Amino acid sequence: MQGIEKEEMIRGRFERIIRDAQTRICAAVEEEDGGGTFREDAWARPGGGGGVSRVMQGGKTWEKAGVGVSVVYGTMPPEAYRAAKGHTSSNGANGASNGASGGVPFFAAGISSVMHPHNPFAPTMHFNYRYFETEEWNGIPGQWWFGGGTDITPSYVNEEDMKHFHGTYKRVCDNHDPAYYPKFKQWADDYFLCKHRNQRRGLGGIFFDDLNDRPQDEILAFSTEALGAVIDSYLPLVQKHKNDAFTEQQKEWQQMRRGLYVEYNLVYDRGTTFGLKTAGRIESILMSLPLTARWEYCPPVDPTSPEAQLVDACTNPRTWA
């Protein structure tokens, strides 16, 4: 790892960035909603650190929207370390095995959000940006990395919307490395796969993790710009569709797609897994879940319908930008 002064500088800078982003994004969402307000809960983690969760429920535009910031530290079990690194084997990354004793000293700061609009033609959006580091432990050198991304989950395919959303993040990526967008777009398509359904939970975006292949300042700058693009990439889509007319059948389809969203978050999401394994605050960890969802037994889908078009796009990822 780099020197202590450098580590603390990155920690403090990233924490200020995510706290500022939480304030700006919540203010923009409240303004667009035109009726709902965020409830704020500050919480402390017994092992060290804490966070601030802001959640809007039953708004005019959003059924549920949450933006949470957490800054936690202390020690974590080896299995939580493996979850953070994306390894599930007991012989996980870098020797973090069940044979090693004690907890792994760590620091983690992040901002995460999921927003579920009422209207089935307005998409759900998720973002998460985080910085993570560990200290030397049982002979394993200390490490640092950045992770995160922003992705979109509509119930219906709108090509113009997807070109806007993906185009926004392609421009952000290109500002830092032309190789970023194709790499991180593919990573999102692979990561957000609900394997037991053989479908992505949505239409992707960008995703990256364990990013430490260049100076911290460079990755911090990229993460900051990507986080700053959330408002411009997403709110115009909600504004465009929040008053669209829809049928009861279209609302039910949205609820079933939310069911798949719930399945993915509880079974595959690394952030959820890490939070549960580090005794995190349950309300904050499960903030991403919608107020309502639906599971039908073997629901029929007309192969010529807009619903089938969405399933196809989630099964066979497309190039949008």
Results as ranks from 00 to 15, higher is better:
169 Y>I: 07
7 E>C: 08
184 F>M: 13
247 T>A: 06
297 Y>W: 15
113 S>F: 05
266 L>V: 09
149 G>F: 12
96 A>L: 10
226 A>L: 03
290 P>G: 14
231 I>M: 01
238 V>T: 15
15 E>L: 12
5 E>L: 06
234 Y>S: 03
245 A>Y: 02
122 A>Y: 09
274 F>V: 01
80 A>D: 04
53 S>R: 13
296 E>G: 07
204 G>W: 02
238 V>P: 08
81 Y>M: 14
85 K>F: 00
100 A>M: 10
194 C>H: 15
207 F>L: 08
18 I>E: 06
276 L>S: 04
2 Q>R: 03
109 A>R: 09
299 P>A: 03
56 M>A: 05
214 R>H: 05
47 G>W: 04
297 Y>V: 14
107 F>I: 03
201 R>F: 09
85 K>N: 05
304 T>N: 13
299 P>K: 03
198 N>R: 07
41 D>K: 00
97 S>Y: 04
25 I>R: 07
317 P>I: 00
40 E>N: 08
227 L>I: 03
217 D>E: 15
184 F>R: 12
11 R>S: 15
279 A>H: 12
83 A>L: 04
174 D>F: 10
169 Y>E: 10
302 D>R: 02
139 G>L: 04
58 G>D: 13
86 G>D: 07
29 V>Y: 09
132 F>Y: 13
135 E>W: 02
276 L>T: 10
57 Q>L: 14
247 T>K: 04
159 E>L: 01
117 P>G: 05
6 K>I: 09
298 C>T: 08
280 G>Y: 12
278 T>M: 13
5 E>Q: 04
155 S>W: 00
108 A>W: 06
198 N>M: 11
11 R>T: 14
267 V>C: 04
166 H>T: 08
104 V>N: 03
147 G>I: 04
62 W>R: 07
241 H>P: 11
67 V>S: 08
118 H>T: 06
191 Y>G: 03
159 E>C: 03
43 W>C: 02
270 R>P: 08
146 F>T: 05
247 T>V: 00
219 I>V: 13
143 Q>P: 04
